[in-house]
Amino acid sequence: MIDAALIWEWIIKSLILIIFLTVGFMYVTVYERRFLARIQSRIGPNRAGPFGLLQPAADGLKLIFKEELIPANADKFIFLLAPIITVIPALIVLAVIPWGEAMVIFGRQVNLFISDVNVAVVYIMAVTSISVYGITLAGWSSNNKYALLGGLRATAQMISYELALGLAFMGPVVLAGSLSMVDIVRAQQSSLWYVVLQPAAFLIYFFASIAEINRAPFDMPEAEQELTAGYHAEYSGMKFALFFMAEYIKMIAISTIGATLFFGGFDGPFVDQIPWLGPIYLLAKVVIYLGVLIWVRASWPRIRYDRLMQLGWKIMFPLALLNVIITAVVVVLVN
């Protein structure tokens, strides 16, 4: 059953995903900087390489050769551990997302996903909630007041929005009758995209996921204006780069998950005739979704922390709960 070829297939697919995410991370930063610059009537980085395409490489190189400081009285082990804990969930959360139809490569039937576990949605929820540990520990171990406040904010914010986020997943799950992402995509192929059937769930997912990854306008934990950088105030060099990487990979992750749950994933015209189109469609959807995230960042000021918590607990959570129940009632009655 398990043969060497299968294991190699897994390793290669895992490598492809991780390389895609790390390279994607680099180019999302360029994408964001250039796109933001355009919105703000600036040019953006355009000196390193053609169109500034080598900018992330230059940034990375610079960070490698930067001195890394560890503040006095910091908990050194946890201080080192925190960025690693933060980046791991970001790298592995997309393992259950299908990229396209199964294809025949070198005479071998290859499924374009790393694993189609039957509890994929639970896996995503579980993995995303791990990243809160990294941020909390980073804030706590730095022995810095801004970092501590940022870490605490992050903890409270991320766990609060996890509720709404988890409930937003339930809408598509009820409709598809499965927790597997592959099944959810198939269900959308046979009916409509869930953004049409579940608009409330999509909106809740959109905002709750932004809050979950601490992006503007919900970037309270790193709120530059108040907390100077929040939980990663004391991090420098490559350890800072890990936090940065985690944030941008999480952006890619929520875009991919959002595209899969609500926009039909790799689904698109002619995808059943030409299987190569699947990954391209998915990528296109992700790029558009990322563009919206950047646009949101360019446009809105930050919500205040207490308002954010109230939004989560008093509006999003009950609304998401109501959405699940109504969806279930409709599904049962139609059946």
Binding site: I2, I7, W10, I11, K13, S14, L15, L17, I18, T22, P83, I84, I85, V87, I88, L91, I92, A95, V96, I114, S115, V117, Y123, L242
Partner: peptide, 14 residues
């Protein structure tokens, strides 16, 4: 099992 593989790779990267 594949999830374990990618987890190991991610830990390695970190």
């Amino acid at each position: 099992l594949p999830l374990l593989i990618i987890l190991l790779l991610a830990v390695f990267i970190g």
